[in-house]
Nucleic acid binder design. Structure first.
Lengths: 200, 200, 200, 200
DNA sequence: TCATAATCGAGACGGTACGTCGGGTCTTTGT
DNA sequence: ACAAAGACCCGACGTACCGTCTCGATTATGA
């Protein structure tokens, strides 16, 4: 999972002129996550620039909207959490997956940007597309392969995999975003039990 | 289900000054729903007032934010759809409930205000509270009594009712708001089948 | 000097319907003078109505602008101060006249409305005309006859009477409105001495 | 006489950001004078900005009220008219002074802003202070030295200099602002003759 | 006595301008 | 070439006052 919008400074081909400051980039992304978690979902470049001690112009150079910046920040902060042992039982892998999602939706430093992205997705088509493509779709794809394997080996009740995906993920997002319901480990367990064939 | 923020003009107790125009109120609410379905979720009083042929100050007199107005509009437009025959089988009643929700999430004139409310709920705490209290909570409460009855009479698998509620509703909202997934009759059926004890 | 804009309630020909409240009229005019002397020259009907404990509608019924109201108030409060003994020496009569003007420009309850009228006269043509016709012109006319008599009997140096009028009155208004210069009895004396032929 | 409220852009010490556009400043001041002379004394930033083809926010950046702007415009347009030959007879110098004032009070492009400033001075204390300090006071001070010299060399009748100042200037302003009396060369001559010892 | 008619208070409504805020673009100097 | 600073335009915001209007309540007159 690489940075999407902002060019990757680490691998940049050395051109003429002053190189981009990697330290500044990180400071800005951190500031974005921090601001959005402190002052609410509708952040502007203004606030982020100020929190980062950077100039507004600089932000405009690298991101075309605060949402892009926050998506970068979010992806940066979760880029290591995707690796999954491939030879575990399907339900165990799914559980790991869901736990990871639950963790993201619980930690303020990831939940707040995510909520801001969701808010933007509901307002602007471009943000909607980006949110779906770069955040939801990959996670749904990963879950889909697992669920299909589970159905074929009989551990998951046979049904439309997309419905299964929604049954597993939608409650998490719904609670995190709209209901203030707790996202406990129990919740993941209960959701998995509902779509599993054998009850443990 | 009554109008929440704007006083009901029809039953007004005839006080001193010029009475409020009920016709104007309706025109404004309709304009709100229309504008939000045409131009996207972040509407301002400006646009609504113009579309309604009303003055901006009039809107400010009755609603303190566009979200309040849209919530009023939404509640007005669904206020008749709650009645349910009380002696049907539980699953049938649940199905009616979910179909009603699915209809709201499908018709642009209700879906668009709802989406705008959801967007606002993610940005402002006040909007979050209002959205939950006046929209989500009543519907969850109605579903909860049905689900509890279903569990006790054995037609629904025993588990935490709140999880059941989420399993039924969250996928609908998730598809309507974030995924562009279709909200078909099939979907409702499949969700119900998942939590039902006997498969038809 | 009668009230200009608002019909005189005391002498009104008895018609059908509820008669106008003279007490209310006075309360409003007083409130106008009071408000303008307390909160500055740009008063609106809003403020006056509130100060008078009257309805804005009532003010609109009787005056078409706050300036008209203030002119009424001003004329009411000075209507007795014009009588002058006709057989005094000219300079004495002029002095009485100027003293009266100086008193008006000194007492806050007349000075403030006058200043407001002047301010309005500089902004709106209608107010300018009313201010000139109903306030300045009568006073200039009275002074003019005195000055012409003074010139013909040799007590005032012969020159354009209009210039004399300006020399006598303009400094008073200038000091009252723009300079914060004192309007003392001395001032009137010195002005008169300048245009008089024999120095006392 | 320098610009009072808006920093002088020509001599700016070249700092970091984008420099202020001197051309825009002039366009705004000109627009201010033009608008006030065409549409009357109560101008807002709105109208001036539109006439200048500038943004309202830009006006707010540099002036805190339309009056400040108009004072700047007025001072800009008269800044060269103060120089006076120092070795003329006192009455001639005074005459030059008064002629200059009369010219300002006659030309619509200076008279209109001046009238607007006077109107503001009658309504707001801050405007009053600015009008007195930056417009009236300097001119009175200049006149005062002349008059004192005239008194000491016997060409002006001995009296309080402040009264002389008022006798000379107040009629001009009074006619320009309230009476619609003509401000002719004759007027200045007659006023001077009144305070002079020897009649030419 | 009762209809008539005007005053007066209250408040809705459309409209205009206000002063502010943030977004996005540009122009300059500094690194 | 990057970065900071700041001018500039634009649009929307929430407010305030204006002027008009539609009511109900009151208070007098005249049939």
């Amino acid at each position: 999972m690489c940075r999407v919008f902002s060019k990757d400074a680490t691998q940049a081909p050395r051109v003429r002129g002053r190189p981009r400051s990697a330290e500044l980039r990180k400071r800005i992304l951190d500031a974005g996550a921090r601001v959005v978690s402190e002052t609410g979902a509708d952040v502007g470049f203004e606030a982020i620039a100020q929190a980062a001690g950077a100039s507004r112009t600089t932000l405009y150079r690298w991101w075309s909207s605060p949402e892009e910046l926050l998506l970068d920040a979010l992806l940066d902060s979760v880029q290591s959490s995707i690796a999954i042992a491939p030879d575990m039982p399907v339900l165990m892998q799914l559980r790991t997956h869901l736990d990871s999602a639950a963790a993201i939706l619980t930690d303020p430093l990831t939940w707040a940007p995510l909520r801001a992205l969701a808010a933007a997705a509901l307002s602007k088509d471009a943000a909607h597309a980006a949110f779906y493509e770069h955040w939801l779709a990959p996670r749904r794809a990963a879950a889909r392969t697992l669920i299909e394997r589970g159905i074929s080996d009989g551990t998951i009740i046979p049904a439309n995999p997309d419905v299964h995906i929604d049954v597993l993920f939608a409650p998490l997002y719904h609670r995190a975003l709209f209901t203030n319901g707790a996202i406990s480990d129990n919740l993941v367990d209960e959701l998995l039990r509902i779509i599993a064939t054998h009850q443990p």
